[in-house]
Nucleic acid binder design. Sequence first.
RNA 1: UGGGGGAUCGUCUAGCGGUAGGACGCCGGCCUUUGGAGCCGGCUACCUAGGUUCGAUUCCUAGUCCCCCAGCCA
Length: 568
Amino acid sequence: MTTPESSPSSNFIRDLVVADHAAGKHGGRVVTRFPPEPNGYLHIGHAKSIALNFGLANEVSGGACHLRFDDTNPTTEDPEYVQAIQEDVRWLGFDWHSKMFYASDYFEQLYTFAVTLMKKGKAYVDSLTPDQIREYRGTLTEPGRDSPYRTRSVDENLDLFARMRTGECADGTHVLRAKIDMNSPNINLRDPILYRIRHASHYRTGTAWHIYPAYDFAHPLSDAIEGITHSICTLEFEDHRPLYDWVVAETEALHRPQQIEFARLNLTSTVMSKRKLLELVEKKLVAGWDDPRLPTLRGLRRRGVPPEAIRAFCEHIGVAKRDAIVEMQLLEHFIREDLNKRSPRVMAVLRPLKVVLDNYPEGAVEELDAVNNPEDASAGTRKVPFTRTLYIEQDDFREDPPKQFFRLAPGREVRLRYGYIIKCVSVTKDPHTGAITELHCTYDPETKSGSSQEQRKVKATIHWVSSAHAVPAAIRLYQPLLLTNQAKLAVDQDWTQSLNPHSLELLTGCLVEPSLRAASPGARFQFERQGYFCLDPDSSSGTLIFNRTVSLKDAWAKLEKTQQPPQR
RNA sequence: UGGGGGAUCGUCUAGCGGUAGGACGCCGGCCUUUGGAGCCGGCUACCUAGGUUCGAUUCCUAGUCCCCCAGCCA
């Protein structure tokens, strides 16, 4: 059963796949694939592709989506990434079942296909230098020229190619090229390189090979070997499609997959390219691949973003061919929406201000009932200790309150969440700096939460922790990684100059309610009135460290920004 | 000035000749023991110019603008 919310939204690829399936094309099979190269970590842009490919396979009966490592370049790939990619795909919530493959497993078959091409006179060994090849290729507006080696005999090609394989030729001395058309207006068709010599150890095949297939050769054939029906990739491969089709046709591969292109995901105020992400990690501009500021799946996970939120986001942004930059706020919306429904609420004070309740009995401890999740009655309640000395948020007190400020101020009343209404009677300041050091308040015993006594209303309810019971914590607040958008980065000489110097703010001396002492790393909470936070694995039994996943929407902050100049 | 693609609210996205819809965002209001959530209302878009048609975002023509391609990366 599908509801309007859960039914996938229409997009041109889904429509096409569904139509093919209904028409019985490819024998009614739908086989997609997610083909990462194991040379980097997955990010939310990959999530869009993963959700599309696995989603499609899950939607049609008998569909399948393969996870295939496109590992044809020994110099950049590493098993570390193979492991990480699998973990991330699983974490996102997708399953390739037993369909995990490596392009490197096809090296032998690919070699045979190359031989087929040579025998048909459709490929030749070129011995031009890399510089010459570039020169012979022509430019966007000028046609290329045939290489003098283009007319080598089949036997010579076969012999040379075999010798390339055995390792007797140095890197760069020869390549295998498709024989297509050096005059083609599509540069990809000007005798594209199919194989290059690389005397490098491959993480899976070791030194068995000295030649490695290029993407344009390996990819279509890997798809064909696996019986992929719909080979979905991004827009920049659009003008490789004629070559994709040529390779599949000329090698006479059994299956003819269809390549379909869509626009990759871009997000405001972050970077998505592998190169830039790698640069951030290598230059230690961030703490690692799982730095919560990064749009990597590991970064998002560590930040506390649930995979469900990422999937909902991917479904919502749709799939189209126009270039797009999605606002980060949209991602944040789906994170809040998900977390609102299921995060337990707790109280935590980020910037503590001491409050003494002058008329509250010294030494007394009340266990107040607090609701765990107003969105989910089954989440139950918990006890929170209440005492004479508390801490509240510095932001929740203003000595000289601006208009619309409903919180505590001298002479004003406010409710303590799950507790009593209190009134500020005096302010203690540091005699030298003038900084507010503590507040003295009185509480109204008639106003205890849930009591049947007088139910007075006050304008605001604020969170608090008991001084004697609070647990110290450190909290990391995150801001956008970038001050500018990706679109503008290309022209910047050094894009790292656009990094936000305040993307990470570490708060120490925070105080959280005692129930949090039992939390395990990865656990997500809503700190009431502040945002969603996730216990970081860096936490030890002595120190709790939380990452702010996303703040709550803050109507007051918005109001204050537009109405009043900041007071502090 | 070669080839391949793309242009719909501020941002994503639907539409397939018949009142341009949704989401985010934004602006009001209601509600609220989270200034959260929720609820109600509002805002803003078919790149331009012609043509075909009773009727064009949709079809045609001519422009304009944006993206991608000259790795032995993928």
